[in-house]
Design a protein around this nucleic acid. Sequence first.
DNA 1: AACAATTAGTTACCTAGGTAAATAAAATGA
DNA 2: TCATTTTATTTACCTAGGTAACTAATTGTT
Lengths: 147, 147
Amino acid sequence: MVFHELHQKSRLSIKEVNEVLKAYGLYSSQYSILFCLKRFGSMTQTEIWQYLNVEAPTVTRTLTRLEKSGWIVRKAGSDKRERIVYLSPQAKKKLPEIQQEIQRLEENLLIALSDSEQDQLISLLKKICKSTEKGEMNDEPAGANLD
Amino acid sequence: MVFHELHQKSRLSIKEVNEVLKAYGLYSSQYSILFCLKRFGSMTQTEIWQYLNVEAPTVTRTLTRLEKSGWIVRKAGSDKRERIVYLSPQAKKKLPEIQQEIQRLEENLLIALSDSEQDQLISLLKKICKSTEKGEMNDEPAGANLD
DNA sequence: AACAATTAGTTACCTAGGTAAATAAAATGA
DNA sequence: TCATTTTATTTACCTAGGTAACTAATTGTT
């Protein structure tokens, strides 16, 4: 019951986010990477997938698309294994507007919940999967490099 | 914040379910269709995707896989456009065991929540997306045909 | 220094979910 | 009745997420 509902709402909200992002030629998971870079500054790919809690190949693929469409740039780091990801100038320019639209959408989707219900929901969600050690997440990546 | 957490937990729980289902050669979305058929009996494909709140092509694909691996059977209905989906005898035999394992897993993933917290969580989740009419779901498909 | 183990990222391949457009059968209507 | 519209399903193609196996660079060990 819980997981059915969880899964439904997750899909539904992604669908709505994609609808809004369509105007910018973006998808929700691409946006979540851009959001991440905006918040934390340049990051290595490993920092990104660890923060977003997805696997490395998923991020590789999405970054390839974001680079091709000009939203991000990747440069080699001093450690030549790693690639450091930056927002492109165009991304920096467009992102505030997109962020605002997404935030407005999210507020709409949560319109039926009071502020305290939203807090409650988050804290209940955070309790899920806590038994299996796999489910650990950090709120911040190791080193934030705002620029 | 809410949607980030929602998305995370949704993915995480699907991952765990898949882990359990691996032993049976199943994936979570395949299981959700089998679960549906067990609960409601034979259904048309439209009844399935409407109940699960996914698009028709998604169900077509998953059913094709389930049929190929012998979990379901599809027969033409009197209305020759529709295909009626049945659990195979093997599926009927195996399903109780699988269901039990999944339930045990779900209880484990929710171990940190009390019963009333789980109820609370469900009712909070149900309030999401209620603004946009798209988010309507039925608890029961039109006609339940248990057999 | 040289070999082994770890780490960052990629590639190939699988399932899931979505949209758009096509097909075929059923229902509607002039 | 015959043309039109609606409905059930499918096909083709896109993104997302996962695992397993690979490469290349760095670290560790002896």
